[in-house]
């Protein structure tokens, strides 16, 4: 398990464009929004979270488009399957590494943006936990979609993943809505965490079935 962690993070870290690229893309999207809409800073606050969720979604979409493709093309997946008879732990860890190297950095950056936009430190409690959890969910679901489309292009992967993300987006919207009205948001965060805990095991399991089928 620790070997896998080391190897997978080594592979991603050494490929700068695959992890730093998406983080920079996140920054670029966040910067470009205020440039494209003419908004008073008050109005920007209203749409800010919508921008934040969509940027993190797009970032994850871009960063995961070849999560399995490289390992598929160079034979790593096949090699690993022959050695270990199972892909489950490799996929579980791969997804975790992507969250560690991309999901967490964009959550931190997004939180900075939200604090600076609202001018209020308390938005940390809205932005940080929800981005941390939702990015992990996004990564899992995009990994699933991209495992299905694998070598058939990332557009197909995005097409079949996006509909699965709607409930998460709505949940995120609800969190902001409740926070704006001054309601409790911890129950919604817990709900999202619960969703994450369920899919965190099920999705790698489904992905390993799909990838095995690809390797046949």
């Amino acid at each position: 398990m620790t070997d896998l962690l080391k190897i997978e993070s080594f592979k991603l870290r050494k490929k700068l464009r695959a992890w730093l690229g998406p983080i920079l893309i996140f920054l670029l999207i966040m910067i470009s929004f205020p440039l494209t809409v003419e908004l008073a800073s008050d109005e920007l606050k209203n749409v800010f979270y919508s921008i934040l969720w969509l940027s993190s979604l797009l970032t994850v979409m871009v960063s995961l488009d070849s999560i399995f493709l490289e390992d598929f093309d160079d034979g790593t997946l096949e090699h690993y399957l022959i050695l270990n008879n199972s892909l489950f732990s490799m996929i579980l860890i791969k997804i975790f590494i992507y969250w560690l190297l991309i999901g967490i950095p964009i959550s931190i950056l997004g939180t900075f943006f939200s604090i600076s936009t609202s001018g209020d430190f308390s938005s940390f409690y809205i932005a940080f936990p929800s981005m941390l959890i939702s990015s992990y969910i996004f990564i899992n679901l995009f990994a699933l979609g991209n495992s299905l489309s694998l070598n058939k292009g990332s557009a197909l992967g995005a097409l079949i993943t996006m509909p699965l993300l709607f409930p998460v987006l709505i949940l995120l919207g609800k969190i902001v809505l409740n926070a704006n009205f001054g309601f409790e948001i911890s129950n919604l965060l817990l709900l999202m965490l619960g969703v994450l805990l369920i899919i965190i095991v099920i999705i790698p399991f489904i992905i390993s079935f799909v990838v095995k089928t690809h390797l046949e």
Partner: peptide
């Protein structure tokens, strides 16, 4: 509707 189209494309 989009999901149906996604299935067909896949």
């Amino acid at each position: 509707f989009i999901m149906y189209l996604g299935l067909i494309s896949l």
